[in-house]
Design a protein around this nucleic acid. Sequence first.
DNA 1: ACCGCTTGTCGAAGCGCTTCGACTCTCCGT
DNA 2: ACGGAGAGTCGAAGCGCTTCGACAAGCGGT
Lengths: 349, 349
Amino acid sequence: MTVDRGRRRPAQPTIADVARHAGVAVSTVSYVLSGKRAISAGTRDRVLASIRLLGYHPHAGARALASRRANVIALVLPLRSGIQVPVVMQFATAVVTSARRHDHDVLLLTSDEGPAGLRRIAAGALVDGILVMDVELDDPRVPLLRELDRPSVLIGVPADTAGLTCVDLDFDRAGAVCVQHLAGLGHRRVALLGAPAAVYRRGTGFAHRTRAGVTRAAAGHGVEVVSVPCEEGDADVRRTVVGLLERHPGVTGLVVQNESAVGPALAALAGLGRRVPDDVSVVAICPDQFAVQATPMLTSVPVPAEEIGRQAVSLLMRKLTGEAVPATTLLAPRLTVRHSTADPAGAPR
Amino acid sequence: MTVDRGRRRPAQPTIADVARHAGVAVSTVSYVLSGKRAISAGTRDRVLASIRLLGYHPHAGARALASRRANVIALVLPLRSGIQVPVVMQFATAVVTSARRHDHDVLLLTSDEGPAGLRRIAAGALVDGILVMDVELDDPRVPLLRELDRPSVLIGVPADTAGLTCVDLDFDRAGAVCVQHLAGLGHRRVALLGAPAAVYRRGTGFAHRTRAGVTRAAAGHGVEVVSVPCEEGDADVRRTVVGLLERHPGVTGLVVQNESAVGPALAALAGLGRRVPDDVSVVAICPDQFAVQATPMLTSVPVPAEEIGRQAVSLLMRKLTGEAVPATTLLAPRLTVRHSTADPAGAPR
DNA sequence: ACCGCTTGTCGAAGCGCTTCGACTCTCCGT
DNA sequence: ACGGAGAGTCGAAGCGCTTCGACAAGCGGT
């Protein structure tokens, strides 16, 4: 067993081994692989056969050194409280999958190493580009990204987007669409059960934008709206919902933004003896998965994590090739009607 | 603006620039950085000053090429259904944080590229070692890892651990501890609300082990136990709980393994008019965060994602230095008593 | 005064790949 | 019959770093 140790040395074959085995020059193998120069079919086949036979895989470091491209992008994830974990996860997997399709790998960073981490990664040529999630309205990482001279794409939209590339769901319109749907059904008093207070305080874009959209749409439709932040956790959500309906008994429509509040909010309504959708209509902004798991299935505006991830990667790839891209890409919200919204009680048919 | 483009070329300084600036040889700079040879204090300071001044960061690719160490580890995450998203997320962040402490970065892979992905990464020297999450009892990736000749650590325990290094919570004992707690309170009939059926079918270790532990402990304490799989989603959980209590009305203790089932299960119990803990005691195996968010706060055995992640990284680092490490590390479960468990109704005080 | 250490530094040889001329053919138009 | 344009291939020069052997000093022991 131990004897084996020192002896075995399959020692990954190098491009030189492949070249020798195929009887061509090293550079020819390289061109077969990159397709950057014409190679005759015969040679190509011979080289490819040798590659397969020897089990050759190019050495990533050597390639990065010579070509000045690492074929790796960084994904900076948030670690903070109040984030929507499953959504983040969906983003991450979408990003990895898309990146692979573009022949790139993904390096995972967490924000807690701070700007220094970004700098290290970028300057060290470990990555070609950077994807940043959960960007706040006034994010300290933004100025750094501007100066960093590696292409980057933000998921989320900061206050000042000059010189940046951002992708996100259009939360403003998402909020508006929810209210519009409720207004269309005849509701005159609605409430927004928002994100935790800390999230607003932090200035996270999506929370503010949603609230703005809700407010604007309400004004436009002559609907009264009250908007309350909502902490996570069963008890807190219940308390918030109870308090809300005590102070505003006339509310018949509820927009729920915080996906982790969806379940407890429904439970709280049930506890108060308010039926959904008969007494109160509920529309959620959350991943579809949650909307269909709830009882009743929720009318919702899904957060298209998958598509945002894909878009972000695709934008980053385009920037890597020097292409110009739009500064801000806002995905249109789509409202799916399910079983949690209806005419308010007593409304005319 | 466009004019700027071609002109600016701060062109990351190289180690040669630093050497020139500090008036020493390139190798000296290298030794200052690596500490592999003695360097006089004066020289070291001069070099470090130049490094700071020039904003030098070593080129990762060049370093990997020359030193044959990428200082990157791969983290292979599951993408499948039935996984516990927040737990996975906790793992991931713990892994990234720990890895950074060891001066390594983390490359994110998803299982869906399959074994080919692992092979590519390992052979391409993109990573020095591999961390695999959510390993199944009979996992196709396991034989590959054995042959791959890059060190790896599994989070989760497959059936055959020969030649591997595994870390996990001791789910068997976790299950046992839950039953023991209930038995100690006087419960004679308990149930395990398990993972989704697909998870058992797939042969995911933790689900099977938990069930085994529950069963064994029940036998040991003369407690009757019934164990049912449980799908995700409000309605499914409700149906499962209702069905369970119909068929086994004498059950007074519930062990809930699937964290996403916790909320709905409590709601279902409330719907049936069973109070927790007065009529039914509930003990959960789930992250603490969930346990304290529930109402009432749950007696639980937390999954120490953070610590498992740390351990996994630390084991991998030790393997990278050639150190021998234990094949299997099972973390002892710790049960935290909160407000969801009590004597069964009618039990002697 | 000399040997043999240790300590600190340097130069050069790679690590495995990409890329840039340069070179050899072949084939076409005239 | 000849120049020129591709097409196809090769050799060599790096990319930025680590590491090995060599060497110059300084030191204590005899």
